Simulated scan of single mutants.
Amino acid sequence: MGSLGKDEQYLDIVRDVYAQAATTPQPKLCCTTAPIWQLPGLKVPTVMQEMNYGCGTTVHPADIGSDDTILYVGVGGGMEVLQLAYFARRPGGVIAVDAVGAMLEKAQANLQVAAEENSWFEPGFVSLREGDALALPVPDISVDLAAQNCLFNVFTREHLDRALSEMYRVLKPRGRLSLSDPIATRPIPAHLAADPRLRAECLSGALTYEEYMAAIVRAGFGTVEVRARVPYRVLDRERYGLDKHLLLESVEVVAIKDPMPEDGPCVFTGRTAIYFGPEEVFDDGKGHLLSRDLPLSVCDKTAEALQRLESPHFLVTGSTFHYRGGGSC
């Protein structure tokens, strides 16, 4: 990235932390909240499991198409790119980018181990590239699925906007961006947000849920799906100089490169509408057909519009922050 300004110097510390993690596994660097994939014929080497630096599930197998070109940013020990290569079994089917040379070298070595333990896998299935999330070494409109796990939360807000814009740039129309990051249940105090080591350790760079979602929308994604939102860590008042404990959560989001609707993005947070009126089907005149007695997943805009009808024949649930598709916006 060239010379760093004052506001960018934290990136040096982030890279130092992960360079150390490349040579010596750091089990407390992140707190993974999801199990390793259990798939027929897939064996994840122990050395990869020891370097599993993440905060949730980045990509679900159901989101991966058979011909997808997949981009993964922040390689770590290579576990996630191995899992993705299970589906993209062709040369360069997975592009893996990392800014830390030592981490790329370790990932390359780990992928060689994976090839010895998995008869189906060839290291050439993964194209390892040294590069920056703020300037991806990937052509425009060339990727079907992009993903990152517990990386974007270390960025400042300006850099987060740049990283999201880069992901948007490389995605094809209708391409998907899968994200997993810590978020904060209230704003991170300034004395913690300014600590670059805590930021590198995925503790003090977290935005609130509202701020995080707003950043995704600013990048241009017209559809955003919240797949999960669960407890991650606690910043306790004694160790972190707080007036009260601060809960961090892990949020999993899929953002789709759809055109932005005139009335704003379609954001799915697990809300459901059920119609139980006298007609077999209710038509709201905006493209939503609700069959009587059958629940329909709806985006937040549609849920709020149906609630404004004040009809006695609707039940509209609140956000569960758990959505798996099939809804209507």
Rank of each mutant, 00 (worst) to 15 (best):
E8G: 13
Q9M: 15
V14A: 15
A34N: 10
P35F: 00
I36E: 11
I36A: 14
L42A: 05
T46H: 10
Q49D: 04
E50A: 04
C55Q: 07
T57S: 03
P61E: 01
A62Y: 06
D63R: 06
G65D: 01
S66W: 00
D68P: 02
D68Y: 02
L71P: 07
Y72F: 03
V73G: 00
G78E: 00
E80C: 03
A85W: 10
F87Q: 05
V97F: 09
A99M: 14
P123V: 00
P123Q: 02
G124N: 09
S127F: 02
A135T: 14
A135M: 10
P137L: 04
S142Q: 09
A146K: 06
N153A: 14
N153L: 08
V154A: 13
S165V: 07
S165Q: 15
E166I: 10
Y168E: 08
V170W: 10
K172C: 11
R174D: 10
P182G: 15
I183L: 14
R186F: 03
A193V: 06
D195V: 10
L203H: 11
S204H: 14
S204G: 13
A206E: 08
M213F: 07
M213S: 02
G220E: 03
G220W: 00
V226K: 02
E238K: 11
Y240S: 02
V253L: 00
K257Y: 05
D263L: 04
C266H: 08
V267C: 11
F268P: 12
R271W: 11
S291T: 07
A303P: 03
E310Q: 06
T317I: 11
R324K: 11
S328R: 13
C329S: 12
C329Q: 07
